[in-house]
Amino acid sequence: MDSSEALGMQFGIFTVGDVTTDPTTGTTPTEAERIQATVAIARKAEEVGLDVFATGEHHNPPFVPSSPTTLLGYIAAQTERLILSTSTTLITTNDPVKIAEDFSVLQHLSGGRTDVMLGRGNTGPVYPWFGQDIRQAIPLTVAHYGLLRRLWREEVVDYEGTLRSSLQGFTLAPQPLDGVPPFVWHAAIRTPEVAELAAHFGDGFFANHIFWPPSHTQSMVELYRRRFAHYGHGSPEQAIVGLGGQVFMRRNSQDAVSEFRPYFDNAPVYGHGPSLEDFTSLTPLTVGSPAQVIDRTLGFRDYVGDYQRQLFLVDHAGLPLKTVLEQLDLLGEEVVPVLRKEFAVGRPADVPPAPTHESLLRAHRAAAGDSQPDREEGVKAG
């Protein structure tokens, strides 16, 4: 049993893959430099003992991760235990057949160190680029995910729907590793229908937890937990929850604030808006010392309950690679070890650990009445 499973939680980082000018130097990385930096960041995440690396999916400048499984497959070849995920796979504009194929291949390449986070995306022009209509975003999400589940679970699929062409006698190749599909997280910032979809199928729900106040995250997670229980998957406390987060650290909190301020003030998403002080008071953004990050993060449990996955955003807004790697050193050496220990305190025994391929495989075999022992090779899940 790996450490993340034993303690019930996984810790990691996620990237949006933005190419942003460093406001302190005026330097803008090339797309090639940003992609290579992302690989270096993932390798560093494993080196410092984190469990998960996740990448977003974007199809327009100034972002580079337009092909997440290509990136994750490359990272899989250079890591041994890091769980490789997306922080958004666009269930609306990607074809379910291609999602099923890509992630099955990634499962085999990584030895099962793969899961997927599905989302609608927040860039309107992407829809027509892929022949879809943004007004159909929710129906596309529901229909595409319904088909994706079948593709991963049924040997032969016949499908008829109104939002994509029909399938007749389709068989996915390759099949999911060990017959076990990747674990699915459904990600949302503000869409209750996504929480409902996750609850209906007993999947995980990931709250972005970056741009909105904690009260909003609390309401979304409570909705998901309540509906998870309604559909008979367990108690609300047994629902599988993940949170995003955003931090910038230096050992001295004032150094962190002064260094991060120009990046915050010019960031593409929230730059030239609220002050850094206002944003950190109204949202979970934490800029300060490792101790402050620990205290703030431990406080998340007060309003979402015991949860399974915590991912941090550390590499955006033009921050240079050297600085990002320093952030990872602080996370791995000073923050995550304390979070692992403290989040385990008082964690009820019936709250499930973070899903891994091995835990899903055990459940699959138990459901099939198969007492075959787990594979001894191939999967290292962080």
Rank of each mutant, 00 (worst) to 15 (best):
P192A: 07
E193K: 11
E193N: 06
E193L: 10
V194D: 00
V194I: 15
A195S: 13
E196G: 10
E196K: 13
E196C: 03
L197H: 05
L197E: 07
A198F: 04
A198P: 02
A198S: 06
A198C: 08
A198D: 03
A198N: 02
A199D: 07
A199F: 02
H200P: 01
H200S: 06
H200I: 01
F201V: 06
G202M: 08
D203L: 01
D203W: 01
D203K: 02
D203I: 04
D203H: 12
G204L: 05
G204Q: 06
G204R: 04
G204M: 04
G204K: 06
G204N: 08
G204S: 06
F205K: 01
F205A: 05
F205R: 00
F206Y: 15
F206Q: 05
F206V: 11
A207Q: 15
A207H: 13
A207T: 10
N208I: 14
H209I: 06
H209L: 05
H209M: 05
I210F: 10
I210E: 12
I210R: 11
F211T: 13
F211P: 01
F211S: 13
W212S: 15
P213D: 10
P213L: 09
P213F: 09
P213C: 08
P213A: 10
S215Y: 07
S215T: 15
H216Y: 12
T217N: 08
Q218K: 14
Q218R: 15
Q218E: 15
Q218F: 05
M220R: 12
M220W: 05
M220D: 09
V221H: 06
E222Q: 13
E222A: 14
E222I: 00
E222C: 00
E222K: 11
E222F: 00
